[in-house]
Structures are given as C-alpha cells and as structure tokens.
Design a protein around this nucleic acid. Sequence first.
RNA 1: GCCCAGGUGGCGGAAUUGGUAGACGCGCAAGACUUAAAAUCUUGUUUCCAUUGGAAGUACGAGUUCGAUUCUCGUCCUGGGCACCA
Length: 856
Amino acid sequence: MSQYNFKSIEQKWQAQWIKDDLYRVEEDESKPKFYSLDMFPYPSGAGLHVGHPLGYIASDIVSRYKRLNGHNVLHPMGYDAFGLPAEQYAIQTGQHPAITTEANVKRFREQLDRIGFSYDWTREVKTCEPKYYHWTQWIFSRLFEHYYNKDEHKAKSIQSLIDVFEREGNNAIHAHTSQEELFTADQWISFDERNKSDVLNRYRLAFVDETTVNWCEEMGTVLANEEVVNGLSERGGYPVIRKQMRQWSLRITAYADRLLEGLNTLDWTDSIKEIQRNWIGKSEGAEIEFKSTDGNLNFSVFTTRPDTVFGATFMVLAPEYEGLENLCSAEQKEEAVHYANAARNRSEIERMASTEKTGVYTGRSVINPFTNKEIPVWVSDYVLGGYGTGAIMAVPAHDDRDFEFARAFDLSIIPVVKPLQGELPEKLEEAFSAKEGIAINSAELNGMHVKEAVEKAIALIELKGIGSKKINYKLRDAGFGRQRYWGEPIPIIYNENGIPTLESNLPLELPKVESYKPAGTGQSPLAAVSDWVNTSKGTRETDTMPGWAGSSWYFLRYMDSNNSEGIASPEKLNYWNQVDLYLGGSEHATGHLLYSRFWTKFLHDIGIISWDEPFKKLVNQGMIGGEDGQKMSKRWGNVVNPDDICDAYGADTLRLYEMFLGPLTDSKPWNTQGIEGVSRFLAKFWRLFHQGEAFNIDEAAASKEELKILHKTIKKVSHDIENMSFNTSVSAFMVATNELGNLKCTKREILEPLLILLAPFAPHITEELWILCSKDSSVHTADWPMHEEHYLVESSFNYPISINGKTRTNMEFPLDADRADMEKEILANETVQKWMEGKSPKKVIIVPGRIVNVVI
RNA sequence: GCCCAGGUGGCGGAAUUGGUAGACGCGCAAGACUUAAAAUCUUGUUUCCAUUGGAAGUACGAGUUCGAUUCUCGUCCUGGGCACCA
C-alpha cells in the first residue's frame, strides 16, 4: 500500500479499538487521574455540523495526550436529552419525544464515531432516562429538605431547623429566608399543619412561591430569565409578559456570595467570570427608613449612595409594592392603583420600548430623616419590585433616572455633591452621577469625598436607628417549574390539606399522555392524566423541571453512571473529583455554568462531595462560521456536514484541519478549500514512511540535525498542548515533516517518536504506521517522548546587527564570544561602517543569543 | 449607557520574559514532469519606489525604551455580555 488510503485505515482501526475496549477506563489509584469533559449536546434533529466537533476534538487531543503521559483519563460523552424541540415536534406530529430523541441520539452517535473520539461509551448518560433522572429528582428532594444557615455558611436539614423552632422559635436563627414574622417556641408548637408548612416553605432551598414570572402565552409556559431575550422567548421568538404565578423555585440567592467568591479560585476566562459577576450583581450600600409625620407610613429604601440622602427630594415605589392601594390618599388612590395595575401587566417589550418616565403621585408624603423636610411619595415603573425593597429615595441631582423623573413631573432638584474640580452649573442640565466628588448642602458631611461621606452617612443612619449597612444582589431565585411534558416530573404530592410532601418512591416516571399540548391554563399536559395525578397520598405536582436540571450534575454521573444506590459511589466520586478541563461554548455563562456551581456547592454542603466547585478549568471554544461569513445554519444554506469531510478527506484530516483553522477560542470561518493543506500534509507524512510502494524505515543512527528536528518538535508540541494552542502544534508537525522530508530521513529513531506526538491529533494514520513499524500494541498506549535540551543548544548564533534599531546585516558569533571582541568585529564590519557614516557609536548593545544594536 | 475581549498581507493566522514582523497553510503567479489532466516537485508572493538597493509598515495619535505587534495614555472600529438593579 503506497497511497495513503484513509478510508480503509480509519474503518479498520475504529472497529479494532471497539473490539479491544481501548478507551474503557476504570479507577486506578496507581495513576494520577485527569477528568476531561465536553459540554454534552442536546440531540437535535439537524445532526452535527463541522462547528460542533471543534471543542470535542480539542478535548480529545488533551485526553489522549494525558493518557500518553501516564494519566488515568475520564473522558465521557452523553446527551442532554430533555428539551423543547422534541416536545414541539411531538405536539405537531403526535410522535412521542422519547422516540424522536432516541433516533437523534443514534444519528449523533454515528457522526461522533466517525471522527475517532476516545470516549468511554460505557459511561454514557441520557438525562431523559429514569435511571438518570431518578437522581435529578433525588437532588431536588434534598433541596426541599434543606435550608441555608448564614452563620455556618452552608445548607442544613429542615429537621434541624424544626428542632430549633420547637426549642426557641425563629428569633435566634440566622437563615436565608423570606420569613419576616418572628415566633416563639410556644407559638410554633401551636401552629397548625398548614401554617407550619407555609413557614418552612419560606426556608426551604426548593420552595413554592407566588412570584412574578416570565409567561409566554404562545408556548403556554413559564420561562427562566435567560430564556428570555429582549422580551421575546429565546426559542421561537414569542412575546413574553410578566405574570403572577405559583411556582417552584430554587433559593440560589442563598449562595450568591459563595458563587461570587468561588470565581476567584477558578481557571476560567475573565470574560465568563465577569459575566457571572455582573449577573450576581453584588452592590453594597445602606437601607434607610423614611416615615410619615403621623408615623402611619414607613418605607425602607436601599441605596448605594447614602451620602446623597440630603438630596432625596421624593420617594418612588414600584408598581408591585405590597400594600400600595392601602397607603394612597383617597383622592389619588384610583389613579395610582390603575397605573400600577397597568404597569404590572405590560409585556417586557412594551416596558423596554418606553423611554419616557411615567408615574403617579400617591397623595402621601414622608419625612427625609436628614433634612426633616416633607417629600412626596410617587409610584413609577422605573422602580423594580424585585430588587432591594421595591422603594427608592430619589436623588434627582445625582441619578440620571431620578433626574428625568423630576424633570417630567417638576419635582425639586437639590445638588449635594460637587465635582472634585470646578463647580456644578447654576442650573443642572443633567444629573451629576460621577462616583467621585465632594459633599455640599449636607450638614456634617460637607467637604467630604464621596467614599468618606458614604461611611459617615451609614454611621449617622445607624446612630439614628433608622437603618444599617446592607448588601443587595441582582441575582434572583431560579424558577424551577415548567408547564411542559418532556422534562423530569417534580416529585411532590400535595396531601389532603394541600401541603407539599416528597414522593418517596423514586424515580417518579413520566407517564404516557394523550396530547403533548400545554393546556394553556398554566398547567402542563400531565394534569390531564388523572390516574397519575391522583394517588392515595394526594395529588401530584404536574409541573416538570427546566432544561438545566439534568445538566446541573451530569458530570458526577459519568463517574458511576449505572449506580442504583446514589448519584455515584463515594469512592468513585472521591477518585475522579473535580473536572480538570471543561470545554464548551460561552453561551452557558449565566445558565448551566452557574446552576452547576450552585448544585455542586449544595452537594458539598450535604456531604455528598468534598469539593465545592465543579469545573477547575473552563475553556470556551469559538464558533465556526459558514464560508460566507454568516452563522452556519440551515437557513443560510452554508452548513458543512462532518460526514462529508470524512468521506472526502478522512477523519484525521478533519481533526487536524479544525485545529489548524486558528486558536481554539477564536471564532473563525470555515474554508473547505483550505483543508487541502492538511490533507497534503498527511499524505506527505505517510510518504516519510514509504519508499515507492513499500513501507520503509531503517535502523541507522540519526544525525544531529535529525535529532534536533525531533526534539524541537517534542518540545513545541508538548508546550502547545499544555497551552491549548493546537493550531501552532499542527504547523510544527508540518515544519518537521518538511524538514525531515528534505533530509530524506527514514530512521526509526526519529519517526517512531514522531508518530506518538501526532497520535492525539491523528489517531488513525499514526496507529496504522505504528503497527507497520512492527509494534504489537497500540500507539495510544505508548509513552510520550521527553525532549532533551542538549539536542537543541547551538554553539553559535547568527546575530541580526541593527543600527539605531533597524536591522542592516547579520553576523555569526559563538554564544560564549567575548563582548569586547564582538564589539570590535562588529564596528569593523563593512555594512556597519557604511551606516555609521564615519560617526562614532554612542553605545553598542549586545544581548547574547538575541540581537546587537549599535546606537549612533 | 455600563462591563469584558479583540483589531497584524488577498484569506485563516504566527511571533515563551520588549529583541530580525508576516512562521505554517490557503489563494495567486511562473516553471518542471505529462499527449493532456490529476498528483507531485521547484521558485516567487506585505506595500511603495528602484538598476545595485532603499523607504514605509502590526486600526489611528502620542508616550516610555538602545529597541514596541508586545508596556502606558487617548481616539476610532469590531465582537460578546448586561441593560431603568437605585
């Protein structure tokens, strides 16, 4: 066989590796472990295009490299199999989503198999299988049974909370809770079942709540914040409105601070960390109470600028403000309530479209506790109900939004901060919202810089007993119920008193239904299955879990994917531990990546795992665009199918080319023409091992030059893989092959190590050549070669000689040449003389092994 | 508007701590082999001026330095994220 016949080679070795179970991995204490993970795909009907395997190829190269370096590598793959497309297809066709999903999985598997990945498929997971979602439901159940203790900074059992309530009520307990009323032990004991359940619900990490949700009428379901883009549903682009609904939620806000702190320990890109930081949105400030003269009204507001309190000339309440209708004056009540109702029901789109400030006066006033002046209370939709206290003190002189509002309704504007340099204009044309400045018109704060004034203001607020320092987060609790069929049933039964209790018999399987259409009433299709809903213990919850439930812990399941006793055995969890390298797209920054961190921290708290961050290192691969520069999609007709590339060029060429295209993390366009380059390279590489028709390598000793080529390649490729710089390793292979080809090198001493180096990138061709080298075991079980520096060191260097920083000539000197001798010789050089034009040099800079610069 | 990342040939891109800008590949041009094509090989290919040889050049403008794609400041542009979060 003289021609490189990739087709037969690739088929042969893929079959052989399956037969040999080559990629099967077991726990092995004698080797260091390495866990390399790809974000598992949603098996869509469209199949894979060449953009999908980019990250898979990169992580496969790292996995193979680590194996060759003596690591025990866990490199699994699976499917995120619950989701909307299969369900929508079911609604249209009546086809059960499980059937479509299975067909899609089969197709994905065929496509993946052709590319020659080293996955241990015995560990495959599919989130839609009962043996998998058994444990998704189990984790939900544990969340239901725990609350967050702020003193211990961890989740604790609800039973331990009940014990405290029975002993001493809830006064002393420091929990993350929406429970505001205090009760004593006696009161707790006297509560009825309903009352107790309601109180505990306010502590549980999985809880039901009447909340404002993103309701999508078209899809008949609630969406999570990240499933809403610009007021439209991410899938389908349907309008989304805000609606009050009873909803299961997870108390992720309890973990806000730990989620923020944990980021500092992770090897992730700054941009992803920054996105999560902004999403969590921590801000420090103060809560201040404002009261009416008669004491009947009492509002708490949150502000990050307590130093501007002297400039608070009015107050604004959110339309959602609780008890709004009862606090308005008789004359204003109708108008204000009408406004608030209208504002509450506006869709996100309408809300965002309006830039004009609107609002209504409540007819009431409160006293600014610092100026002692009466200030009016307004209601406006620019204040958000879900953030802070839902009420603000408005400081129009120093906040753009308050300024606009004051302008619109002719409210007074009093400046209380001036710039560090200069003065404020006589009449403000815009708010002075800089975070630096000097306090004015603010009594004892006058003359202080903002930072100092903030501290002082908080001290005064605390002294007056009207508030305290406070930290707020933008992060909201995560809605966890979907009115959908194709998801994990929430394992909750409401007993005869309507009290939620856990289903004890897991997995709670998804029943068959007649129709997959949501009822549109806010209930899932499961509500129609009466013999499933009605049990001897009560009625079942009919909502299912959101798409991110199953993906929040799948990386743990791979460790022990068939375990029926728990999510995985403690030994295996402990052995494989954190994911060492996680590869996937950056689009999951605020969804999957945040929820996985949350669940990991929770599982850590309840003692299931010993670490509390799931992914040590995260790398986001870029997108591969179409050849026309647009996004690769059916819509533009620019989709390139990896199967076609495998047919025409082979899997090894596809793998090399995807890596050669550019840096892994960059987005770049696909170019089928460019693939010829790596295709030629592999053919050339093949020819290195052949003489005409015959395979040909010999045992002669390698020359110094050949050894240098080999060792510089070992050094470069090892370094590049460690740094995820795969495009430059491919070019290093090309350089080595060109150079060895020019030398007509046929030596085993050189070519065999080269095969091992290339094996992670091009596993098939290297295996074939390896076996032709008369080896009796796979190249993928060989030992990675070590580079020896002494082959690389030179005795002399061809110095670029520059005059005033511009290179003019080159001169060869031994590396240990004497500086003075060098200088003498350089200055005597003809070209140097010419450029010096008879002047004498001011300075001669000699950097050994680098450069010479003559300054004149 | 705010926050992050990035701007290098016709194209994808390269340049370990500041040290010969354009590696490697695509494309293009010319040539060898061939009846021809494919395959393969050789040579050239940043721009401008030119006879040897020069000049400019890493988005733009400044600065630090013997020396800047690399460091600092400002401006412009592109991509991504957030978006009335007080």
